[in-house]
Design a binder for these strands. Structure first.
Lengths: 343, 343
DNA sequence: ACGTGCTAATGAAACGATTCAAAAGCGCGC
DNA sequence: GCGCGCTTTTGAATCGTTTCATTAGCACGT
């Protein structure tokens, strides 16, 4: 339809001005007289001119784009973090482009390459495994990087993460404050650092409290189904051996436990057993008994990550900072002590 | 650390060859003798050279990037579709970059602009509202566009979508085949074309079946909570007036209905009431009674969308195609007729 | 008439990779 | 020693934008 692509030169010809003037209209409107500005704008509209970002970047040496690589876009934590990052970037005139590594190191590497070739301003990476070497290489070439949901133990770059020890502590302390003493921690074989941290926090809380005991039950996986198995096992215990509080390492497990406890034996939540999960997934609020949980401050994390990155972009000499957020307790029906009979 | 950025010129100097030779090593290795190739490669590694995509694109006039704009990355439908699109693109040497419009027309417009300025090869758009004019403008400038999860009634561009009428038909037909006759359709005030389509399909199925009746119940929203309200209302009906099959316009509603039906009155699923949802969200498989549902072929849709786009990129003269997929029935416990007593 | 002090507009140079016509290098037969 | 055919290498031109030193244009005071 149109001649292949419309360049700034075409616009200049059409408006009867020099290319530099067109560029000024686009980038420094104040430098151009109103009349000329209008004429150029008219030509732009008529011809349907769209800036060629490649040329602009080539000249500028830098783009206005931030690369964000997440482990799984399907995970609400990441999608919500991404949303926040986008908003914060937009406020600063940048755009976030998203890459989904799907926990695959190869895909992660691909995105890092693509983003570097695109000369993004910087990258936010939620790394798959050990990205130490990759990040080191990036940094040596002057590419700002901020790690997300992971601290850099060697302090090579800034990072934004969550204190899962504090989260575990918070959850169990909440159970203790609701008067529970026989606490069960349900977690999967602790491959994940995160699960181990949550357990550590749970232990701390119990140790601070005389008369409280913590039992650790291992689930097959971090899923609803595995939770149901664990819940079934617990529900079948003799009355004297029942726990009165359960902390699950994530919400899926907790929902499974809840299903089993409510249906298999007809125990009441929270009256007989108080239950709390972790992550505060969307679903938790609408479980049969709304599930208390521990929430990561995703929005804050997304914004902070972008801010740290921009800081580093503007002042490459700035110090690396490891920002660690405390998670937040979300109280819902599954731990509400209010209705509970005294004693 | 390093001198600002390493260009192909630096590599050429280091290796003692001309810039054209370096370029050939990168793009047409066969044209270069093995010895030279090795020397150049060595220089590249030593200097940590990274291709400047902006310059490459500027010269080539086109990138190897596809822009994908979705309504909500948090929605599993879109995240899974994105994953498939990425895979398919990767197989064809392209990369997908993701933009999340969050159902916001402004953000959608922003991403369209950014992608167009980046001269992406083409865009996959799951549009917020009426993108007719925008798409028209893009196309007039030669930018290939494929709509996702939406047909283009005016056939201006190719599209990939799902036949929700067929989905609704499928769901209710499944209930009928399980011997159910008193069917309830639960949907929200049908703002969404999609919900209306599902109801249309449901009606068709019922009309084909003598003695079957369909009742439509309106929920406040498409949420678990709203579903629970509807389920409570239904469960409290007198025995003779109970439905024996319920089709909910999405899984969230269905899960709410399930919670209410099971807990409030202790009815059995599927023995007393068979229940089926729509969308097949992750959670459905692990509901207390695993929920039957209707699934969109997300992976296929993602791949097809990319294929249609590539088709158009390679042959701009190719005809626009509206690909409409049939959804797929997912049978689970909530409709399993097997256990049901005869009669 | 001429210099001064403005603002507005100009256009060549630069960014870094790719392309391609031309040159260089080489082996070989006469 | 020379020309031929082949592969390998060269380097200037190109893409579209931004930048910035210059130039143009204009009003005003002397």
């Amino acid at each position: 339809m149109e001649s292949r692509t419309v360049s700034i030169k075409d616009v200049a010809d059409r408006a009867g001005v020099a290319v530099g003037t067109v560029s000024n209209v686009l980038n420094h409107p104040a430098r151009v007289s109103a009349a000329t500005r209008e004429r150029v704008q008219g030509a732009i509209d008529e011809l349907g001119f769209v800036r060629n970002d490649a040329a602009r970047q080539l000249r500028a040496g830098q783009s206005r784009t931030i690369g964000l690589i997440v482990l799984d876009v399907g995970n609400p934590f990441f999608s919500s973090l991404a949303r926040a990052a986008e908003d914060c970037a937009a406020e600063n005139g940048s755009t976030v482009v998203l890459g989904d590594s799907g926990q695959d190191a190869g895909r992660e590497a691909r995105y890092i390459d693509v983003f570097e070739q695109q000369r993004v301003q910087g990258m936010l990476i939620s790394p798959v495994g050990d990205v130490g070497p990759r990040v080191e290489a990036l940094r040596s070439r002057g590419m700002p990087v901020v790690l997300v949901d992971r601290t850099d133990t060697q302090r090579r770059c800034s990072s934004v993460s969550v204190d899962d020890v504090a989260g575990g502590y918070m959850a169990v302390r909440h159970l203790l404050e609701a008067g529970r003493r026989r606490i069960v921690f349900v977690g999967a074989r602790a491959d994940y650092r995160q699960v181990a941290d949550r357990l550590t926090g749970a232990r701390q809380a119990v140790e601070e409290h005389d008369g409280a005991v913590l039992e650790v039950v291992e689930a097959e996986a971090m899923t609803v189904l595995a939770g149901r198995d664990v819940g079934g096992e617990i529900a079948q215990r003799r009355t004297g051996e029942l726990p009165d509080g359960i902390f699950c390492a994530n919400d899926l497990l907790a929902i499974g436990v809840m299903q089993a406890v409510l249906l298999i034996r007809g125990l009441r939540i929270p009256e007989d057993i108080a239950l709390i999960g972790y992550d505060d997934i969307d679903f938790s609020a609408s479980a049969v008994v709304p599930l208390s949980s521990v929430r990561k401050p995703t929005t804050l994390m997304g914004r902070t990550a972008v801010e740290l990155l921009l800081e580093e972009i503007e002042g490459p000499a700035s110090r690396r900072r490891q920002v660690i957020f405390d998670p937040e307790l979300v109280e819902r029906g599954s731990t509400q002590a209010a209705v509970r009979a005294a004693g």
